[in-house]
Nucleic acid binder design. Structure first.
Lengths: 226, 226
DNA sequence: GCAAAAGTGTTACAATTACACCCATGT
DNA sequence: ACATGGGTGTAATTGTAACACTTTTGC
């Protein structure tokens, strides 16, 4: 009991979205053994007096330079054999970044950090494929009952971005009219007096997620659901 | 990093149900400091080569003698100040026991282990009140989208037991006809040729949850939902 | 004026809710 | 025969899903 020698790490599956459209995940290439040279999700050891979430933010900044807008705990992975050398328990998180925060630190060696399309992932170190699978499942499920999709879009976004995000993540077509009716019906989006400039076709109105309003509605018992 | 001195425990919030009706939670009284004499949820240190879930089953058996039928990970609590002495991270689980497993080990001092009604809980050691709150929320939410309620009932149960369980947990009346229609409509309950014996009134038919059938239906895309 | 994406309403269908009486047993 | 809990169907309402044309801009 008092001779317990278990180490604790945090790891973070960080998702980004481009309107290409593609959903991507932030990976780092390992510099040391075990699994030297393999891609892995960013993470590292928790310091003795450090809260778990702080450790996640710190490691992400150190390893990738990315600052995330949304973070939640995913699951704790603790199988004794998950690390070939020591007993290491990993508290995994999942995070979302907006496109404008979607850049990798200038001081990182670009060869060591990269975004990968979730449909085209490399083999990963440790049990990170498991962690990633769970994170993807959680994200897919969660966007249907919590308004976290906005955390993957710019502050101001055209409605079609939201629609494409859902189409891409859920892997099925969505009826534009019904979707718009439903989302706008909640009343948690502010329609701005601004139009998207770039691109072909008719310019879209921009919208903004009103978080304060969302919590008011939630308190009233209104449930977000797709 | 290599001087990390964090310890890892598991703790389990174990729920039971009696058709009184009441939802109860298994607690143990602490024998040692810190919080000596206070009630706490059962748990303890993970051994070096021990999977986390094994540690939960072991601690539950050692401390309470209760064998649980359902177990899932809840959340990992890691605030540095959650234990007044050391840095201890707790991987919390939540478990469900059927009424017939609802007994406390004969070799336990009865004064040290007890079931408490969730509406009448004592002050708890550490941050266990937080853990418990989260577990209750999770249970309430989860019975609406996964068929875990059966894990709190006997193998064979009258339909009214299920209805009362849901009424009690959700804290609102449920229309008997609509509820029955919906649940039986899923086709995951077998109606037995047996009747409940005890009690006043017309004897109820007994039902049994068909887990195999449930997974078949789930694979077909049928989703359980209340 | 044409290509490209944005914006908009109505109808059919499915699911959910509301609601009240008879049945089987024990005493 | 009465008290107790068990068992059952239908109609109204609500929510969801299907569906196609017009508008605004850039080239």
């Amino acid at each position: 009991m008092s001779k317990q020698s278990i180490k604790v790490t945090v790891d973070a599956v960080v998702f980004g979205y481009e309107s290409t459209p593609r959903i991507s995940i932030l990976l780092v290439r390992r510099k040391y053994d075990p699994f030297k040279g393999k891609w892995a999700i960013p993470g590292g050891f928790v310091e003795n007096e450090e809260p778990l979430e702080d450790a996640v933010y710190r490691e992400l900044k150190e390893e990738t330079g990315v600052e995330i807008g949304y973070l939640e705990q995913l699951y704790t992975f603790g199988q004794p054999e998950r690390d070939p050398r020591d007993r290491i328990i990993s508290v995994a998180y999942f995070g979302l970044v907006k496109p404008n925060a979607y850049t990798i630190a200038a001081d990182s060696d670009a060869q060591e950090v990269a975004w990968f399309d979730i449909n085209n992932l490399p083999n990963l170190a440790f049990d990170h494929t498991n962690i990633l699978d769970m994170a993807i499942k959680r994200l897919r499920a969660k966007i249907t009952y919590e308004p976290i999709g906005f955390e993957l879009l710019d502050e101001k976004f055209p409605f079609s971005d939201l629609e494409n995000l859902y189409t891409t993540l859920l892997g099925r077509e969505i009826d534009r009219r019904n979707f718009r009716k439903k989302i706008l019906g909640f009343g948690m989006l502010d329609e701005l007096q601004e139009k998207a400039s770039k691109g072909a076709g008719r310019p879209a109105n921009l919208f903004q997620f009103n978080k304060k309003r969302y919590f008011e509605l939630k308190d009233k018992g209104i449930v977000f659901e797709i």
